[in-house]
Design a protein around this nucleic acid. Structure first.
Length: 462
RNA sequence: GGCCGAAUGGCAGAAUGGCUAUGCAGCGGACUGCAAAUCCGUGUAUCUCGGUUCGACUCCGGGUUCGGCCUCCA
């Protein structure tokens, strides 16, 4: 039984899909005007984990993650760069896909883009006007009339009275009420525009998600996700738009992931305290970043610090070490761990507990390999399968353990030194053997002697 | 100011009305020429003050601290 924490009700609820065995999932993706930072990485990884788990749990999942490819920031950045907005967004869409692929994030079923759904957006705005939930203004804008939607504020726990206090009408806007928001923005100089019944202009931000999600998934669907900062106003507005337009309940379960923090502050562009995925990949592998993200519950704050990534490295080293030197066989048994893993995941995607289960499997493998290699191999296959549900542990162990990240001598050099040391050991020249080992250690190479010889790996902690 | 959330051992991070994860680090032992890896064992915690309860870290209330949303933000 899958339990989900639903932002709408602020409690865990039993998940019941609209159609048995099927999940329709929509996640608000990126606005593509810059490189993805760790906050974006968290959304990508968290919902990828959810996507993978739902499938592993037997659901047929339709996963839609949109791309916002027109908005104020994109227009401004394109002007600054003196380039067409299309080349700017194409570049960052490409970068985002590369980052996602590095993080082992599966492509969603579709990645609809706002600028490719203008007709659907216009159609929805027209319906909202027809039904008396929206109105065109003289400046070419179209606004949503918040007072026309009774449930406004339900998702974010706000009342329209609370919101009135801080609301302002910006210069140039022609809202009837400060809470009203733009569905369509009338053309301004130097801005891309599309034709509409209300004159040339471009869509507001919120309407694209209402239009694209209902077009792809129907008027009502199961799960809508995104970062916690989108709950208000973005998701609140999506509900108001969609339900007013379709007359049906929009989404049953709202999932919001917590922020990435740095020095106890939200990592964000405006604070300037962000690291891009690419920044971090200078020092840590993408799988280490993925592990770091999944080592905390998706709703908890995720504290970014070097020590955390180093811990992720140490953890992955232990996991991959358990997988070394075992033949590829079918997964076996390990019913306790498999059950515990799925129970953890079914409890609102408790990845920290799921990871803890993987470590209990590691212990079982290491114990078994002393007496029954076949059993150890079977358990290792189980470990890989469960890790795969988290999108982890899919590399060859030595590819991870000897990854090229660490500065050190090349492989031929390492093996040459190991051969020298083996000779010294045979001659019981311990001083020489230890000196060679110390030399390699100084360059971050760790040696391990066993019955069959000496093997090496990169150091996992500093 | 309004609303929401969080405070757990050296660090990170789960869970639970009583049996108290997991990883790293520490300590003891086995193994090893010595190590490493591995195995076995082990110590350390629930912000604060009240309340409910046979029993609370867990539930309730006050306080403190921190974070978030209320404007673009994943």
């Amino acid at each position: 039984m899958l339990m989900l924490y639903n932002t709408l009700t602020r409690q865990k609820e039993v998940f019941t899909p609209i159609q048995a065995g099927q999940v329709r999932l929509y996640v608000c993706g990126m606005t593509v005007y810059d490189l993805c930072h760790l906050g974006h990485a968290r959304v990508l990884v968290v919902f990828d984990m959810i996507y993978r788990y739902l499938q592993a749990a037997g659901y047929q999942v339709t996963y839609i993650r949109n791309i916002t490819d027109i908005d104020d920031k994109i227009i401004r950045r394109a002007l600054e760069n003196n380039e067409p907005w299309q080349t700017l967004t194409a570049r960052y869409i490409q970068a985002m896909r590369e980052d996602a692929a590095a993080l082992n994030v599966l492509p969603p079923g579709a990645e609809p883009r706002a600028t490719e759904h203008i007709p659907a957006i216009i159609a929805m705005i027209r319906r909202l006007i027809d039904k008396g939930h929206a109105y065109p203004a003289e400046n070419g804008d179209v606004y949503y009339q918040v007072s026309s939607f009774a449930n406004y504020g339900r998702l974010s726990g706000k009342t329209t009275a609370d919101l009135q206090a801080g609301a302002r009408i910006q210069p140039g806007e022609q809202k009837q009420d400060p809470l009203d928001f733009a569905l369509w923005k009338g053309a301004k100089p130097d801005e891309p525009t599309w034709d509409s019944p209300w004159g040339p202009g471009r869509p507001g931000w919120h309407i694209e998600c209402s239009a694209m999600s209902t077009q792809a998934l129907g008027d009502s669907f199961d799960i809508h996700g995104g970062g916690a900062d989108l709950a208000f106003p973005h998701h609140e507005n999506e509900i108001a738009q969609s339900e007013a337009a379709t007359g049906h309940p929009f989404v049953n379960y709202w999932l919001h992931n917590g922020f990435v923090r740095i020095n106890d502050e939200k990592m964000s562009k405006s604070l300037g305290n962000f690291f891009t995925i690419r920044d971090v990949m200078q020092t840590y592998t993408a799988e280490e970043i993925r592990y770091f993200i999944l080592a905390s519950h998706y709703r908890s704050p995720l504290h970014y610090a070097d020590a955390q990534l180093t811990q992720a490295r140490a953890s992955l080293t232990r996991l991959y070490t358990a997988l070394r030197d075992l033949p590829e066989v079918a997964p076996i048994g390990a019913e306790d761990q498999t059950t515990a893993f799925h129970a953890a995941m079914a409890d609102d995607f408790n990845t920290p507990v799921a990871l803890a289960v993987l470590f209990s499997l590691v212990r079982a493998i290491n114990r078994a390999r002393q007496k029954d290699l076949g059993q150890a191999a079977g358990l290792a296959a189980t470990l890989r399968t469960l890790g795969g549900i988290l999108g982890l542990l899919q590399q060859a162990p030595d590819d991870y353990l000897r990854n090229a990240f660490f500065v050190g001598p090349d492989v031929a050099e390492i093996e040459h030194k190991i051969a020298q040391r083996t000779a010294a050991k045979a001659a019981k020249d311990w001083a020489t053997a230890d000196r060679i080992r110390a030399q390699l250690a100084a360059t971050g190479i760790v040696l391990e002697d066993n019955q069959t010889g000496t093997r090496w790996r990169h150091q996992s902690t500093t």
